[in-house]
Computed example of a mutant assay.
Amino acid sequence: MTSRVTLVSPATSPSLRQARFDDGASVDDVGAARARAAAGSLPSAAAVVLSPSVRCRETAEALGLAGAPAPELAALDVGHWRGRTLDEVGAAEPEAVGRWLTDPGWAAHGGESVRDLCGRIGRWLDTAGGVDGRTVAVVEPEVVRAAVVHVLGLPAASFWRLDVAPLTATELSGRAGRWNLRLGRPLTAQDADRCLAPDQAAGSR
């Protein structure tokens, strides 16, 4: 049995543009418009799940996906840094930020370490690997990073070397312990056309 998991990163939001630890902000107008334009660009799925954040829920809705939030797919818990920008935290706690970016086991902000996040997402993937069919998950960028670390067996320290652009899909196929990876592709209106029958695509222009 081969399982398929498509991880979709959220559309742009003020938090993403400002490098602000998620503060519950909605996606911005540009991000929402691009998500709506890409509706239909994803293959049909047996299940749709979401990171339990406003921007992931709004992205899914704009893409025409109806899914349920999954607590195990929550963003990295950054404790008392939530809602602040990286520059603000760096100015107030430069040594702490340095440790956070170099030590994947560090969690003195009162939240979760990068290593713990990678373990949490890895456990979810291993469970998803036993599910027949495709799962589409609209998730925070750090969840995508953690998934890539897990499926490639990378050291947790490589987490920060992975960039995840907004509205991209990272596709996994296989099963627990034997995943193949297709790195993030942009979701575009052209992708949506390719998912339609030829007569539907012609009528959409």
Results as ranks from 00 to 15, higher is better:
149 V>E: 12
80 H>M: 08
131 V>K: 05
141 P>M: 08
91 A>L: 14
76 L>V: 05
34 R>E: 13
41 S>G: 10
57 R>G: 11
19 A>Y: 08
134 R>A: 13
136 V>N: 13
32 A>D: 14
26 S>V: 00
131 V>E: 15
127 T>P: 01
24 G>S: 10
78 V>T: 07
33 A>F: 02
22 D>Y: 13
51 S>D: 12
153 G>C: 14
138 V>K: 15
82 R>D: 00
133 G>A: 08
35 A>Y: 09
83 G>E: 10
117 L>H: 09
80 H>W: 06
63 L>P: 05
41 S>Y: 12
72 E>Q: 08
153 G>Q: 14
132 D>H: 13
103 D>G: 02
125 L>H: 09
132 D>A: 15
152 L>I: 05
91 A>E: 15
137 A>W: 04
103 D>N: 13
73 L>W: 08
143 V>I: 12
64 G>K: 07
77 D>C: 12
72 E>Y: 03
34 R>A: 11
87 D>W: 13
29 D>V: 06
34 R>D: 13
83 G>F: 14
110 G>K: 04
144 V>M: 13
72 E>K: 12
148 V>H: 12
96 A>P: 03
118 C>N: 08
71 P>G: 01
137 A>Y: 10
47 A>I: 03
153 G>A: 11
31 G>D: 05
82 R>A: 10
51 S>H: 03
71 P>T: 09
146 A>N: 09
68 A>M: 13
84 R>G: 10
96 A>L: 10
84 R>H: 14
33 A>K: 09
18 Q>E: 15
124 W>G: 00
64 G>N: 10
148 V>N: 12
98 G>N: 13
139 V>G: 13
80 H>I: 04
83 G>D: 03
46 A>L: 07
41 S>E: 07
67 G>A: 05
144 V>P: 07
152 L>Q: 15
122 G>N: 09
90 G>M: 08
65 L>R: 07
115 R>F: 03
82 R>E: 07
40 G>E: 04
154 L>V: 06
80 H>T: 00
75 A>T: 05
25 A>D: 12
63 L>W: 11
76 L>G: 07
75 A>L: 02
47 A>Q: 15
